[in-house]
Simulated assay, not measured.
Amino acid sequence: MIGIRVVRAFNRVGYEKKRFNTANEDFRDTGIQVNKIMALLFPVMMIVMNFTNIAIVWFGAVRIDQGLMQVGNLMAFLQYAMMILFSLIMLSMGLIMIPRAQASVKRINEVLRMERVINDPENPSEVVSSYGHVEFKDVTFRYAGAEKPVLHHVSFQARPGETTAIIGSTGSGKSTLVKLIPRFYDVEKGTVLVDGVDVKTMTQKALREKIGYVPQKAALFSGTIAENLRFGNRAADEAEMIGALETAQAIDFVMEKEDGMDANIEQAGANLSGGQKQRLSIARALVRKPEIYIFDDSFSALDYKTDAKLRATLKKETNHATIILVAQRVSTVIDADQIIVLNEGEIVGIGTHNELLDDNVIYQEIVSSQRTEEEGA
């Protein structure tokens, strides 16, 4: 059961039991009612069918005795009557199944009728260069149905060979911003460019082949570790996977497993810790060898020592690519070539750690608050 530990931790077992019992009692009552109808309907239909047989044979025998009907006609009439009655029995059973089928059809139709929001252009642009240069030009974005935009007039560039870090308070739009690059959403105003081409004019396949994305919540699939690492690059050999695991600081716990990279991972990585899942997700992106790396708060479950080692090796292995890094911790972004400070969907500062520490109030507050927390800890 998903969330069982949360239920226990908040002492809500009794409440959840009541909800579960209510749902099950409703299901039980409905099931009993349907079965009562079936229990009554089936015998009634059988009685009707048998009495019909008796009536057909009785009246048929009389007519045969009078010489008005042949035995063959009686048998044919009896067979046709049985076919009709059996069809009526099947119809009655079908009427019981129809409501269940309607519920299933309704759910399926909701999926089938859903229209795609993100579509490829009819005449897509070809990307000649392959550098991974990312540029936001006066981008404004809001979610469907939202009153206010999540991002307001965002403009910046992320260049190959550099690390661009994005930091800000919770709800400032950091994750939303990086999701615009692989075109998980389309911007309301402005333009997102990759290698000088508007992402809206590229095919989604061509765009996403350039990107190695590590989501905020690490997502692994049931199968072996090797299968998960090859998810973005099926042609990856063992040496490439080992190199990615070493860079992601995951080689130790992988090799400690009895089957190594052939060890099984349960659905959603249930048999791994949060830090292990994050490191495998990072290794999966590294195996892809893309031009743009997007790390959406992907180091949050790592301790400071592992975080530092990972960033150091990551910079060496990806010095050719564009790295866009979303983080909550200042220690994670301190060595970035440029740090973008977001506040309520707006860029309030761009610069290095030292530059922002000198003249950016929001960044100073973030640094100060984290230092206070560390001192308190």
Score class of each variant (00 low, 15 high):
233 N>L: 04
71 V>T: 13
41 L>E: 10
332 T>H: 03
254 V>L: 07
21 N>S: 15
138 D>S: 12
63 R>A: 13
155 S>P: 07
221 F>K: 04
144 A>C: 06
137 K>H: 11
138 D>H: 15
78 L>W: 15
169 S>H: 09
328 Q>V: 04
365 E>W: 01
372 T>V: 06
197 V>E: 09
87 S>K: 09
269 G>D: 03
277 K>F: 01
17 K>C: 12
324 I>N: 02
300 S>F: 06
111 V>Y: 07
72 G>P: 01
361 V>W: 04
89 I>D: 08
300 S>I: 06
279 R>F: 01
116 R>P: 07
78 L>R: 08
134 V>F: 07
54 I>A: 14
73 N>D: 15
171 G>M: 04
317 E>G: 04
313 T>G: 05
70 Q>G: 14
40 L>A: 12
55 A>K: 09
135 E>S: 14
75 M>R: 05
308 A>S: 13
188 E>M: 07
11 N>W: 06
345 G>R: 06
3 G>K: 08
150 V>P: 00
88 L>C: 15
22 T>I: 14
202 M>R: 05
25 E>Q: 13
288 R>K: 15
340 I>C: 03
356 L>K: 05
229 L>F: 06
336 A>C: 08
172 S>M: 00
348 V>A: 07
241 M>T: 03
186 D>N: 14
222 S>G: 14
333 V>K: 05
212 G>M: 04
376 G>N: 11
42 F>G: 00
238 E>P: 00
186 D>V: 09
313 T>V: 09
136 F>A: 05
26 D>N: 13
199 V>F: 04
277 K>V: 00
324 I>P: 03
94 G>D: 13
239 A>K: 10
283 A>H: 01
47 I>N: 02
373 E>D: 09
311 R>Q: 14
158 A>G: 07
275 G>I: 01
327 A>M: 05
207 L>N: 02
140 T>P: 08
1 M>V: 11
174 K>W: 00
136 F>N: 04
164 T>G: 07
25 E>L: 15
234 R>T: 10
177 L>N: 01
14 G>P: 04
72 G>L: 05
182 P>Q: 06
101 A>V: 13
316 K>W: 09
61 A>G: 15
44 V>M: 12
209 E>G: 12
283 A>V: 06
17 K>A: 14
174 K>S: 03
377 A>L: 11
102 Q>W: 12
92 S>Q: 12
370 Q>G: 02
6 V>N: 08
224 T>L: 06
90 M>D: 13
260 G>W: 03
19 R>S: 09
298 S>P: 03
260 G>N: 06
11 N>F: 08
24 N>Y: 14
112 L>W: 06
60 G>K: 06
65 D>T: 09
283 A>D: 03
88 L>R: 13
367 V>Q: 05
311 R>H: 10
179 K>F: 03
245 L>H: 00
335 D>T: 10
217 K>G: 09
119 N>Q: 13
81 A>G: 08
114 M>P: 00
